[in-house]
Amino acid sequence: MPRLKAGEKSRISFKLNGRKVSGDAEPRLLLADFLRHEIGATGTHVGCEHGVCGACTVRLDGVAIRSCLTLAVQANGRRVDTVEGLAEEDGTLSRLQAAFRRNHALQCGFCTPGILMSLEDFLARGGEPDEGEIREMLSGHLCRCTGYSGMVRAVLEIVEEMHEEQNA
């Protein structure tokens, strides 16, 4: 890649939820801002902008990361998955989203997109995380309205379901 000059925009393209998207970005543009302002994908939320709150978490090549600590140019040519990609086209919720709804794991919903994307990666790694491991993982996200009990219940329910499916 040639040296990208400060203040000059270059064309950035990547696969967002399976579809190719493109936009222009200066080197300093954060991936979170690129998604929201350049692509118009506002499902990813921006809270603290220094990696603490977790609201902006997306998956980059499958791995849950902070999009406020990643440059848009770093995502060029890669795969980005955000909350918009979870539900079916017809609005049917993903398994994780449905479990969140059943367990009242969200209230205002500001932190939820990031938490869902973290969990998608976390649960895809296999194993059967227990409550302690789930809570430790959730410590990377701040929720200020419902607290975390509903989220823990939702995840434990899914872990149990996955366990039963594997042994069926």
């Binding site: 890649m1 040296r3 990208l4 000059k5 080197p27 300093r28 954060l30 902008e49």
Partner: peptide, 13 residues
């Protein structure tokens, strides 16, 4: 809370 401008280079080696 946005970075000041900088050049960016992703070297190949």
């Amino acid at each position: 809370m946005k970075p000041a401008p900088f050049d960016y280079i992703a070297p190949e080696s």
